[in-house]
Amino acid sequence: MGSGTPPSSLATEPDDVGAAEAVPAGVPTITVRPGDQALVDRLLGGDESAFAELVASHHDTMLRVARGFVKTDDVAQEVVQETWLAILRGLPRFQGRSALKTWMFRILTNRAKTRGKREGRTTPISALGPLEDADQPALSADHFDASGGWNSPPAAWHDPARLTTDKELRGKLLQAIDALPERQRLVITLRDVKGWSSAEVCNVLEVSETNQRVLLHRARTKVRKALAPYLEASP
């Protein structure tokens, strides 16, 4: 992020806030959260703590999603900063036809797609080709014998509570996420790190429910595999 004042490019009126409430065909719809209108009212009333809550909940996720559409972290940060002002400027017109979170992330993805196209990155998440390694098994065939039983069963994990307390293991977890193909990284981040529902992920990333499940399955499988060597050995 830059200085403490918004860049001049933010002065333009957003043109994508209305379209952000439209739900694309074929993706699940979401029930509007009852707290949304109250939050919108607080934001419109100048309640700083309401904005701080929104930032704490969504800023990091917005960066990760934007990064899926543009080439660099810096551009993603610019897009997200612009999006925050677009959200604020669009708030008086928010009608609650979609959940506030979905509306916000639609504004973000509209902007990130436009920016990605402008800079020559024309592969938004939903338009990428076949799912990465979707036809591969979770574990390679050599783990199993001819009858489908284990050749090399998974070794027991020692003290797995370290996963949430050990700084080094936390670093390995982050590395494992970073090493995933883009769509798998996004889906596991939104679903497991950020706690989004599958319907929310399908809406924002414009992927089908089936593809979302496959991406999550592949991502979780790889992250477990990446962590295993550090947990199989005694600390």
């Binding site: 403490g4 918004p6 704490a56 990091d60 996963l163």
Partner: peptide
């Protein structure tokens, strides 16, 4: 479960910049 524990709020610096936008 370990993934769920990874979530963190933005840094104070980022929060300050965004508050300026607000």
């Amino acid at each position: 479960e370990a993934l769920e524990a990874l979530d963190e709020p933005p840094s104070p610096e980022v929060s300050r910049d965004l508050m300026a936008i607000y």
